[in-house]
Design a binder for these strands. Structure first.
Lengths: 337, 337
DNA sequence: GGCCGCCATGGAATCGTTTCCATGGAATCG
DNA sequence: CGATTCCATGGAAACGATTCCATGGCGGCC
């Protein structure tokens, strides 16, 4: 079954290939007869232009690449959705690649997307400048979202990783907590680093303990949250409150608490990162550090279109805020202020 | 900045374009000198072959398209992940499109992916045979996953939508329930139809009520689950147990219960579809109808490679099973058997 | 030593589209 | 009415890779 080309359409319509192409791509100088003949012929044959050939000639593909670390993380699923919907408004189709928190898979996606000549790239990158060198050098319009890479001038839209954590720590100390455990994200990501630093800074300005062993380093996946909870709860002097740096690690940690019969809220205060729908359903509902995922996605797409247009938009930081729910009541026997 | 072509590499390496191409695509008859010269030149220039040109000449793109109804539904996020990982094993890159439960967006993705000449397509389709006619007619290797379209011979891998529901209904009646509300999925999807039919059949073989108004028709999204819960709980004779046909509607429904202070388990038994990680964290944990998402994804990819190879694999139905947890205790004042 | 065949190589055709350029006819203007 | 512009059209070049085909060198074999 040889594939159907524009030549078949042209033949059927009795015009030249050039005319057929003009009609099909909406070029103004075409006659009414040519238009109807070609349109009908194309319709009848079920012609679908070969995008490869088209974008080989034009240098644009009308697609953007999106590389995110983990589809199964609800935060990134929401982000992907937001980006995709906004990109549609600009007639871009979003090709979504899931890096699975692996630098190697991420780089493969970058490579293939560059080969596919996407018109632009949105990514929440992992790894360092060196490994991304080839993307940046390729000159493809790029915007970072959620995460950034140090020492690049790639425009980015990121959450405010400081304020939310500060508020959370202050809230917990206000509730009487002095030992606040922290399940950190990987230090190879900007969000992991910034949130940890914010936690440490916030602690420093309170009277709460800042023992290094209150910090557990996870990898943003559920299993490491579980490991973190186990480790922290088994300390000689365990924390009375827990803060986890993303939603999946929160899920893992809460699973461990349930297993051990430790009541969230009652026996252990808990603050999760990212306002996942399911967190509001827990009983008690979870106090979370939330940010506006939709805004982040929309912003990233808008910035990318600017970069594609040759502008250099300024990076944006979107606010986070603490949403206080039932998982962080005052510490029962705690040293009330 | 004119883009870098294989000709630049050939010039730098001092060989012809043909030789450069052979080296870069691993053709056997190349000399060691040519190999090193070309490889070095390509490396040094940072050459990245243009995939458009390449797949215009070869007729394969080494990509598969994946069109799913909703990334934000954890079931589909997991499915996408499973498909993507298995596709990697076959050297396929997965281009993922999110149809957003909209036939129009779905069709646009199909269209673009066909234009991009993906080597194959995996989809959880919505809509009817007519609207998908053009995809099926195009002859592109296709596999349906999770959902199917009636009257096609497209191979599919679907969950057993009957057994799980049957077990759930039986379990609930065993626990003493006589009024079991059902929040159904859209009847435009095969899963929506089959699960509803299974619920109705299962009810018929018990002594439980089978009032039509125990059924609410949702659309697989959270808001409709909430609407369904509101509607069912306000019936003159409200159900004592609720069964929802997917995870997002379950989340919506549980949200309403929390709002109204209706205790899941205590005041209302609840069975959700799909075993989402977060469901196990609720207190009490949710009884769910589970299926093996990973297996479904892997199976779909394997079937697709068979279709691409020209074979016609038989459709597969994967088992579902009921996982009983705390949300379905015996009905307190219920007519125990 | 001559012939055959293999292998690395370069030139050119090819994939399917868009677009440049030349052409000829119609329309417009003074 | 003649000159100029405009516009629809077709032929052919171009995009950047792969691959067919022809060629020439070399080794092996009788």
């Amino acid at each position: 079954m040889r594939s159907l080309t524009i030549k078949d359409v042209a033949d059927k319509a009795g015009v030249s290939v050039a005319t057929a192409s003009r009609v099909l791509s909406g070029h103004p100088s075409t006659s009414a007869e040519a238009r109807t003949a070609v349109t009908e012929a194309a319709q009848e044959l079920g012609f679908r232009p070969n995008a490869q050939a088209r974008s080989l000639r034009k240098t644009t593909t009308e697609t953007i690449g999106l590389v995110l670390p983990d589809v199964r993380n609800p935060f990134f699923a929401d982000l992907a959705h937001a980006i995709e919907q906004r990109a549609r408004d600009f007639k871009y189709l979003t090709l979504f690649g899931n890096a699975n928190e692996s630098a190697e898979q991420q780089d493969r996606y970058f490579d293939v997307m560059l080969s596919q000549r996407v018109d632009g790239l949105i990514a929440a990158p992992l790894g360092d400048l060196e490994s991304l060198r080839s993307i940046l050098d390729s000159g493809i319009p790029t915007v970072f979202v959620d995460r950034v890479i140090a020492d690049t001038d790639v425009p980015s839209v990121t959450p405010d990783n400081v304020t939310g954590v500060q508020e959370a720590v202050r809230h917990l100390t206000d509730q009487g907590h002095r030992r606040i455990g922290y399940i950190a994200g990987p230090q190879s990501t900007s969000t992991g680093r910034e949130r940890l630093a914010a936690y440490q800074d916030a602690l420093a300005s309170t009277e709460a303990d800042d023992d290094a062993d209150l910090i557990f380093f996870g990898d943003f996946q559920a299993a490491s949250g579980a490991a973190g909870a186990r480790h922290l709860l088994e300390l000689a002097e365990p924390p009375t409150a827990l803060l986890a740096a993303d939603s999946l690690m929160s899920i893992g940690a809460i699973g461990v608490c349930n297993e051990r019969g430790i009541g969230i809220g009652a026996d252990l205060a808990f603050v999760a990162y990212d306002d996942i729908e399911a967190f509001a359903l827990l009983n008690p509902a979870l106090t979370v550090i939330a940010h506006d995922v939709d805004a982040m996605g929309r912003q990233a797409v808008e910035m990318l279109t600017q970069v594609i247009a040759g502008e250099t938009p300024a990076s944006v930081i979107l606010p986070s805020r603490l949403i206080i729910r039932g998982s962080t009541p005052p510490l029962p026997g705690g040293t009330a202020l």
